[in-house]
Amino acid sequence: MPTGESREFSKSKWKGSCNQFMENLFDFQSLSLMYGTVVGVNDLQLSLPKGAYALIGPNGAGKSTLIGLITGSLRPTLGSLSVLGENPRRSSTFQQRIGVCPATELLVHGVTSKQWLVLLIRMCGWSKRLANQRADEVLEQVGLADARNQCIHTYSLGMRQRCKLAQAIAHEPELLILDEPFNGLDPIGRHQMGDLLIDWAKSGKSLLLASHVLHEVERITDSFLLIFGGRLLASGTTGELRRLLADLPQDIIIQSETTDRLASLLAEKPWIRALHRDKQANRLVLTVDSPMKLYDALANWASSGTVSIKRISGSDGDISTLFKLLISRHRGERAYRNTGAHS
C-alpha cells in the first residue's frame, strides 16, 4: 500500500508543473454535454497540468464524448473547457497542437499509407516537400517504413492502428489523444503500441489515453482519470488510487485454523459490516468498511499468537478492482461484492 508521502508527492508534483509551465493541459469548469435527454458528460470540474493521463471507463462511460469536447468536435451544453490554455472551438492554433487517434477502424481504400499521411500533413498547412519528408519519418517511427507504398486496406489491424497513430503524431502535436489504441491488437501489437506510447510520454509531451485495457494503461502512465456515466469518479496516480482502494469497503476472505476465535474478535469491530463463517473450508468471508484497519488488527493478532492466518484473499489493489469498487460506490451499492478476488 502506498504511504501518505506518495499521495502528497504526486499532488505537489502536479502543482509544481502548473507553476512551471503556467498552462494547464485541461481546465474543465462545470463541463456538461447532453444528447437530448441523455447525459454525455456530467458537470466535470477538473484542472490537470501537462502530462500523460489514462482515461478509464467502460463502454458508454463518456470517454469518447469527453474526447470530442477536448478536440473541439463537440460543443459543451453547459460549462466551459480549456485545453492547453485554449478554447478548442475558438482557437485558430489549437488543432495543430493536438493529434487524435480515434477508436474507429481505418477504412481508407486504394490509398497507400504514405499518400494518406501526406494528405493529412498537407491539410495542416505543410508544403508538399516537407509533408513527404515528414511522412517518411513518421512511418519509420511507427515501423511502417517498409509498407509505406502498400495500400492501407491490405494492412493488418495492427498496421492500421500504427498508421492511425502515425497521422496523429505526424504534425508534431503537443498533446496526443488516443481512443482505445489497443483495440483489436494481438499481444505483440499491444506491446509495440505500448512501447510507442511509453516513448511518447517519456519525451515530455502530453498524452491522453482512453482505454479499458487496464494493465497496458498502467504500463504507460500512472495518472488516471476514472469516468463513468459521464462523471469523473476519481483521478490521481496509481499510488493514490491504491490508497483509495484500501479505504473503500470490500469483501475479504480469510483462511484460518482458528476461525471461531477470529470471528469472535472481528464481530466486535465496528468496521466489520458482515461476517460469514464457512466451517468446512476453515474460512471467513468478511465485508469490511475499512480494510486498512482489518489488516492492522490481523497483523497484531497474528504476531501475538492470538490467531493463526493461512491466507487472505481480497482486492489486490489493481486498477480493475478499484474501478469496479468506484462504480459500485457510484451506483450507491454499499460494498463491492468481490467475485474476482485473488490472493
Partner: peptide, 20 residues
C-alpha cells in the same frame, strides 16, 4: 473525492495563449 486535483481558476492561469 479527495484524489481530485484542485481546479485552477482561469484567472490564475497565465501564458495561456499559444505561440504565433
Amino acid at each position: 473525492m479527495s484524489l481530485k486535483t484542485t481546479p485552477t481558476k482561469f484567472s490564475e492561469l497565465s501564458g495561456t495563449t499559444n505561440s504565433k
